[in-house]
Design a protein around this nucleic acid. Sequence first.
DNA 1: ATACTTATTGTATTTTGTACAATAAGTGAT
DNA 2: ATCACTTATTGTACAAAATACAATAAGTAT
Lengths: 240, 240
Amino acid sequence: MKDNFLNYNNYVSVDCVVLGYNEVENKLQVLLIKQKGPEPNTAELFKPQYAIPGDLIKEEESLDEAAARILEDLVNVKGLFLEQFFTFGHPDRVKDPKDADWLSTRRKDPLARVITVAYLALVRIDQINPSAGYFAEQTTWRSIKKIPKLAFDHNTIVSKALDIIREHPEQHLVGRELLPNKFTLSQLQNLYEVIQNKELDKRNFRKSIKNNEYLITLDEKQKGVLHKPAQYYAFKKPKK
Amino acid sequence: MKDNFLNYNNYVSVDCVVLGYNEVENKLQVLLIKQKGPEPNTAELFKPQYAIPGDLIKEEESLDEAAARILEDLVNVKGLFLEQFFTFGHPDRVKDPKDADWLSTRRKDPLARVITVAYLALVRIDQINPSAGYFAEQTTWRSIKKIPKLAFDHNTIVSKALDIIREHPEQHLVGRELLPNKFTLSQLQNLYEVIQNKELDKRNFRKSIKNNEYLITLDEKQKGVLHKPAQYYAFKKPKK
DNA sequence: ATACTTATTGTATTTTGTACAATAAGTGAT
DNA sequence: ATCACTTATTGTACAAAATACAATAAGTAT
């Protein structure tokens, strides 16, 4: 009877596309890590590649918890915006020869299939301080316009994340996640322009954004700027 | 050194929410199976529950392929519309006592965690003939308004599928999937009304739907009906 | 010719999207 | 006090899309 039991087993990982917004330079960047092996000085064992942060899930954690743990380990910040967006599970997604060396330092069975659940995180670059964790030799921000060749199928994963955020920026509350607590409408417009990669008309942008139920006008203006001071705004806390 | 290797292993399954449209009764239903064990006459080993069709993935198949296989085995139809929509991976999602008996007939380690990638399928009820496959004792259609208690977290999975189809019916090409090759605008409107669970104004529906780039007017009308015969329409094939 | 049933269509109104440029409110220099 | 400079802020005309609402058309059956 035991012969009828199914027994396929797989690795399951969570990978995080961390999009960081640099307000000063008005740039949207993605957080990459440089792979490292499990031991110090394992660099000679393989040619490290850039990758997005990810890890196998642990036995007792949910997928959401795994994503939070990976980010916490990497950027030492809790409570970031995190959203599952797609699961990548092609049998060959970790079987490119370019990835064999790194896997051999990390897995008992380097050719085993890995199914990965991908998450999107949004952060303000100036608010976090990524530091190499136990799975990263170093971390680096790269412009979403110049993403290098990444390990595994991570280029595909990043592309899909960008598609999703561009589709519905307002649904992803990008303003709340990527701007300071108080901000001007010009700051908000700059952010939308970077995400959508196109210029927006000031008057029309203001008309449409002012319908946003979450936007509230603060009782405060800019001070000390060399021009007409702008009104500050904030986001209401989400309903739920 | 081997001690540093990570070694968490998991079952990965694909579950399919099959939504079927019954045009005559204008009902949207979900396809459920009644669980069966791997051997004939195993019903006495456990109390079978209703569930959505799903199965562990096989070693060499992609997630999409697994979903197609599961449906093919169940409904003997290939080439259905299929879309991945979410992955459910809570550590306890298969550990409810109600599910222990069935798992014990199917798994070497019934308490092992199972992560499931959920797919949405759209079908015309009159076009397919679901038949009990190797994992189903029997199959049944149930109205989306009266879904019984299901095995595992399948009620949650079905709910999420319904949320998704209601959000963007046109993006899911529900017309193409759920109507005959030629159809009237009233048929199309009925379908949208069932999915969105609200009534639509005929004139406004026609105005908006006629902007649909995929809709074409056929050179044919209804015949033999006891009223003004309606024009037939069809959908163009999707671009790619 | 009439009754019956569903298909089809238009108009007025509101809302939303788009294109486009002048004025306002600060600072710093004179 | 005035002026130059910089960014913030606002309105108007037009087009497009969403909404509310009811009369006429084309068949069949009697």
